[in-house]
Design a protein around this nucleic acid. Structure first.
Lengths: 220, 220
DNA sequence: CGGGATCCGTTACGATACTG
DNA sequence: CAGTATCGTAACGGATCCCG
């Protein structure tokens, strides 16, 4: 396991960067905010990461108490955020806000899965949620299933199928990006780039209210 | 000028990291949040950075529109955050919140100046300020002068002398760190680790209210 | 002396191959 | 599936030199 460079400064910002500032580390945390993941889930989501680097980063994150390694369902290993690790959510969201101001550099590569979107969307909803909202939405993006759970003033978006969704929204990654970066408004999105299958009629209003608020979080 | 690695991903978090995720870049921005700085101010504040890296990072930040280079007072060049660059403030603050949970790694080195503290303190005050607060405080930390300006619901802390302070607070870096990380309370701090010279009597109440609120932002 | 540019040894990264 | 091993390459770190 390669050791990592340290700034050796007393400043808390530098101390934070010593733990999560290395290349790939924040992107690993990003994907873990979508829920527990296996080694290969992470490797596929982070297009281009080398296996040995992923090993090093995971070991360091475990050593610093940001994630834990545990036994999963079928003999698989799962990596999961600790409570401390979950505190990185705001950093990732703020990074997304900045990143939205820049065009992609040159040609881009596609990620092997879409875990990437969960933390940004989930946090935007978290910041827009109000106490009276409660529903479970299934969100299908390019065929990959997410569940958005809203209850008791909390919103969380995970990379897994919904158990009993009040509504099912089907859309594409491209459309979500355009929506999030203000290139498309909610009206256009919901009429031409998304299909909504409502199971519990009265939740659609709440859902649209939350989406409007979430989009406002992304606009600055 | 060395080119920097890119993730080449469409995700806004990865796009943000492509601009400010390189080693040293966020620390450079951190110091610039304390106000415009010369090349050597930055080099001294970021103990251990190599001159060529600082040159590379500054060039990239300028190219991405996060900072600008301008002529300063005595033929000196000044680097200053743009409006886009100032949006990195929340990222840095959130990083400080995470970093506060970790002890320093091994022995630490001292920074050549204390610009490092301005963004964390200023943002904590920003998040705690209320519209009716208004004052200018001079804060002297280990002999280095900062000015905390509070007005119209905004708080900003800059690395420069105050022009007409309502109060002057003199303390040390060690004491500020202990205060910020909850190892010392405001009572102990203000009685034994700080001297306050009040110029405008009625502001001291407001000041203490703001400090209390700012500390609450740091505690989690 | 401030503000860099150039050079070069060292370290971490990235890709591929391989193993339990 | 979950890593380990190897190795070429690119970025970092430190020192030195240059120029106004």
């Amino acid at each position: 396991m390669a050791k990592t460079r340290s700034y050796k400064l007393l400043c808390p910002i530098a101390r934070g960067l010593d733990r999560i500032g290395d290349r790939w580390t924040l992107l690993i945390l990003r994907d873990l905010h979508a829920g527990p993941a296996r080694f290969s889930d992470l490797q596929h989501g982070l297009t281009g990461i080398a296996a040995n680097l992923l090993t090093d980063r995971l070991a360091k994150l475990i050593g610093d108490g940001l994630i834990v390694r545990e036994n999963g369902a079928h003999g698989a290993m799962l990596y999961r955020l600790t409570e401390l690790g979950k505190k990185t959510r705001d950093i990732l969201f703020d990074l997304a806000l900045i990143g939205g101001h820049f065009p992609p550099e040159g040609e881009t590569v596609d990620p092997g899965n879409l875990r990437t979107i969960a933390v940004t969307l989930g946090t935007a909803c978290q910041r827009a949620v109000s106490d009276d909202m409660e529903f479970e939405a299934s969100i299908i993006v390019d065929g990959e299933a997410f569940v958005l759970t809203v209850r008791d003033g909390n919103a969380e978006m995970l990379y897994q199928a919904a158990s009993k969704p009040d509504l099912v929204l089907t859309t594409t990654y491209q459309a979500m990006l355009a929506l999030g970066e203000g290139e498309m408004d909610l009206e256009e999105f919901s009429t031409t780039h998304a299909q909504m299958d409502v199971k519990t009629p009265h939740t659609v209003d709440t859902f649209m209210r939350l989406m409007t608020g979430a989009l406002a979080q992304l606009a600055d």
